[in-house]
Design a protein around this nucleic acid. Sequence first.
DNA 1: CTGAAAGCGCTTACAG
DNA 2: CTGAAAGCGCTTACAG
Lengths: 337, 337
Amino acid sequence: MKRVTIADVAAQAGVSKSTVSHALSGKRPISIATRERIQHAIDSLGYSPNPVAQRLAGGRSKTIGYVFPLYTNHIAGLEMKFIASTANEINQADYAFMLLTHPADDVDSLHQFAVRGLVDGFILMQIRLDDPRVDLLQQAGIPFVLVGRCADNRDLSYVDVNLVSAMDQCLDHLSDLGHQHIAYLHQDAPELGFTQRAQQAFFEGCEQHGVDPLVYPCRLSFDSGAAAMATLLEQHPEVTAVITWNNTVAWGAIDVAETRGVHIPGDLSIISFGHSNFTYPARLPLSVVDIHPEEMAAQAAQLLLQKLDGEPVESQRLIKPTLILRQSTAVSAVKSR
Amino acid sequence: MKRVTIADVAAQAGVSKSTVSHALSGKRPISIATRERIQHAIDSLGYSPNPVAQRLAGGRSKTIGYVFPLYTNHIAGLEMKFIASTANEINQADYAFMLLTHPADDVDSLHQFAVRGLVDGFILMQIRLDDPRVDLLQQAGIPFVLVGRCADNRDLSYVDVNLVSAMDQCLDHLSDLGHQHIAYLHQDAPELGFTQRAQQAFFEGCEQHGVDPLVYPCRLSFDSGAAAMATLLEQHPEVTAVITWNNTVAWGAIDVAETRGVHIPGDLSIISFGHSNFTYPARLPLSVVDIHPEEMAAQAAQLLLQKLDGEPVESQRLIKPTLILRQSTAVSAVKSR
DNA sequence: CTGAAAGCGCTTACAG
DNA sequence: CTGAAAGCGCTTACAG
């Protein structure tokens, strides 16, 4: 399998290598006649440029890096959806997809990696309010897009969830059903922008709706969701509705509730953040706030690709979630436990 | 952020670039004195070689490609575990991890990708009995390792599950509990080696244990597992135990059983293939055959890395699964429905 | 509109 | 044990 190079194409088309290069990049005008000869040579030889050489010579490697710290014991369907959607999107654009799983605080690894110049740009996940990776990439002058947001987002490109809308939709619905004491099982990670914004949106939404807000932190696991729910039920037996930031957490919470004889949705309504095709048991179709991970992934990928092409793009996007009502919410029972 | 190059190191150490290169690769003897000067220069300058240049000059890019067709709607915890484990393993070895999600039958994309020379080697998932990707990579002379096996595995390196052991452990256990009619909800993908081998192991195991084998195909989804279970219960009400190839399928099957009043484990025992930290509801701790995805991922990664380093390695490995008994299996009820 | 040449940062014969 | 030089396959000033 001998590689076909730009020199082969140039020879067959009877032009110089630089002409072939420019025909490919479109960076300078080429006469229609020679353009056709070059195209013909490319087709007949089956030429495709070597991205390694392109990159070394100052061009693109057509590779993007996806920075997503993964702890193998704590992965939910949502994370997977993000990864798979982004990978598919990038691959379909004929770019290579590089997954970087270094821990979030290991900025050195990212630095090492970035400086190696293997990728043209980055997509960052798990964004912190004050994220050292952002400073690093800005200083290095490497294009990147955030999925999420920092505290200060000047000059940054991001795709994020509209959490105010998400919470509003949940609270509108629950409030309409008569719920007065609503809990939010939120992620125990104050450094993340998502966590802060979701909590704030929850508190403000509760105030607007005149309901009593309860918040309990938990980690991304079934057991942690269960533990948080257990504590909640003990400390606030008056609670009649729960919102969870993640479906794994929701299942843990549901498990505890059912085990203690708290019936869903009769005694307790529940809504989870997630996406539309979570699986759920027939006896308990779970209502979810679909944050549209495929959509977020696609937009982030497109944003980055457009930046790499130098296209001017509107670069701060908020995706509006959709409340999908199934059967885990119901009219609040007047409770007197 | 000006890049430090090998020329900078050579200049500071007062040697030639080739000497620095050889000191780094160890491909020819370097006197202890100059080696020390070079090392000192590398440290003080913070030099790390540019993998793009290395690759172009005939060396390594320190990148491996992970070929795993992903359909975003059909992903279970096991897939995620494989991806995350492999990514972590590769990243920790200071290699870049490239995820290729092209559909399995899209050999052209893999070809395109391989010929671009971005990666040093591949790890292949979802191996078919007769896999065109294997021929492609063999002809191209690119190192690769399979997670799974083909029909003919001469000259191939792989890491796979010992399915005979897996089925034996399940059937030993179920048979001891008195089960006589055991079903296997297997993956509806006859082209995959895994599927064929698992079915064969199931049939042979049943024969050895003198039990009645039932097999029902289904796809990787909750709904499909539910549908298969529904059909099974209608056609063979005498069934008292079920083995599923995947936990998502198991939850679908369990859901249907419970909805129809078939109690687990009282009326029906169930064991799922999977891994040790699947989450499960407190009311139904699921027994699983842990196929050790982290272990498989780690071994595959190490195998490939060793091949890239030219180390001779024992290259066909079968990982023995572990049956983790929890509370979804019980003594068979004498049934007379 | 097109070409000859330098250069990207390495590796590896070739020579000593 | 070490160096000078060619070459990997491109891109991009420089020149016309």
